[in-house]
């Protein structure tokens, strides 16, 4: 057991073998220089780390529901502020919220938006595994175009999978004019570390969106999460960038991006796209990725 990495999240949690988010949680919390209060939205992380009567958390931890993780964080922050003012506590703890993409993109969006707008001092970390993986792979608004899920199955008529585009959460969060937000990837832990440090230092709300492959429902071998995540960035599907006070900065510019097929073919959920009748869909997806990248680099160069 590695004592340094076990400081906040202990070994013995029941996440699937080969899951990506423990590395995210440990990296982000490892950068904390003050005590932390962890707020957790419902999701894989909450379900697997708090099996009754055990808990994998060694720090203050609160879980309320899917939709109000940020509201809970706001409450803690406000209570802490007033207790500090009255002199009942000597040190303020940093509040770190962890939510999956279901609890962030879909259900928790209103409370996240409210907390960002009110300017509470907290860090929101969204681990994006593109669906409701803990309840059995239902689609969410973070599921990429073309992915097969339980609620977007392949049939006789419908041959693409999910036909809608992903939600661009980074732009939504950026619209709140917060001081720091960034998109990171679990395969690039040094980059994630740097971003976590910056985000924890910011006074006021900060946001991190971290790519977290799901071995079970993306249907790739247990050992491959790092390789899948590397490909997501190398194909420009998941660019690494940060927005500091409205200023975009791309942290990893891929000079020679790989075709999107290389990322798609690693996963079983995109298997149907390689059938003969879906050739056009693949071309369309490549266009969409290039379009997104063009938009992002235009923003970064201004």
């Amino acid at each position: 057991m590695n004592k340094e990495l076990n400081r906040y999240l202990a070994s013995g949690h029941s996440a699937c073998a080969g899951c990506a988010y423990p590395a995210i949680v440990r990296t982000v919390l490892g950068e904390a220089r003050s005590p932390v209060v962890i707020v957790n939205a419902t999701g894989c992380l909450e379900v697997t780390s708090t099996l009754y009567p055990f808990t994998a958390w060694k720090s203050s931890y609160i879980h309320s529901a899917f939709e109000n993780a940020s509201a809970t964080a706001s409450g803690i922050e406000s209570a802490q502020k007033i207790l500090f003012k009255k002199g009942k506590i000597r040190e303020k703890a940093k509040i770190v919220v962890f939510g999956g993409d279901g609890g962030t993109y879909d259900i928790g969006l209103q409370s996240l938006s409210g907390a960002l707008e009110r300017g509470h001092d907290f860090l929101y970390v969204c681990y994006d595994n593109g669906g409701y993986m803990n309840t059995g792979n239902q689609r969410s608004s973070a599921t990429p175009f073309g992915a097969q899920t339980e609620t977007t199955p392949i049939g006789k008529e419908q041959k693409i999978g999910k036909t809608q585009l992903r939600k661009n959460l980074m732009e939504i969060v950026n619209a709140h004019n917060i001081a720091y937000l960034a998109q990171a990837n679990v395969a690039f832990l040094d980059d994630l570390k740097m971003k976590a440090r910056k985000a924890l230092e910011v006074k006021g709300p900060a946001f991190l969106n971290v790519f977290s492959p799901c071995t079970n429902n993306w249907k790739f071998p247990l050992s491959q999460y790092v390789n899948v995540a590397v490909l997501a960035t190398e194909t420009n599907f998941w660019p690494l960038y940060e927005i500091e006070k409205g200023k975009y900065k791309i942290n990893k510019v891929i000079s020679n991006r790989r075709p999107i097929e290389e990322f798609l073919k690693t996963q079983g959920r995109f298997k149907h796209l390689f059938a003969a009748e879906n050739k056009k869909t693949l071309e369309k997806m490549q266009e969409m990725v290039d379009e997104e990248w063009k938009k992002l680099s235009a923003n970064a160069s201004v």
């Binding site: 057991m1 590695n2 004592k3 340094e4 990495l5 076990n6 999240l9 070994s11 013995g12 949690h13 996440a15 073998a17 080969g18 899951c19 990506a20 423990p22 590395a23 440990r26 990296t27 832990l189 790092v226």
Partner: peptide, 28 residues
């Protein structure tokens, strides 16, 4: 750093010549 269980740690161990001390990974 990538181990989901955080069950690997680096430990200083003596090399085969019994002089050099190097970090080696160990699994729990």
């Amino acid at each position: 750093s990538f181990c989901p269980e955080a069950c690997i740690e680096l430990r200083k161990e003596k090399g085969s010549d019994n002089k050099t001390v190097k970090n080696k990974a160990r699994v729990d």
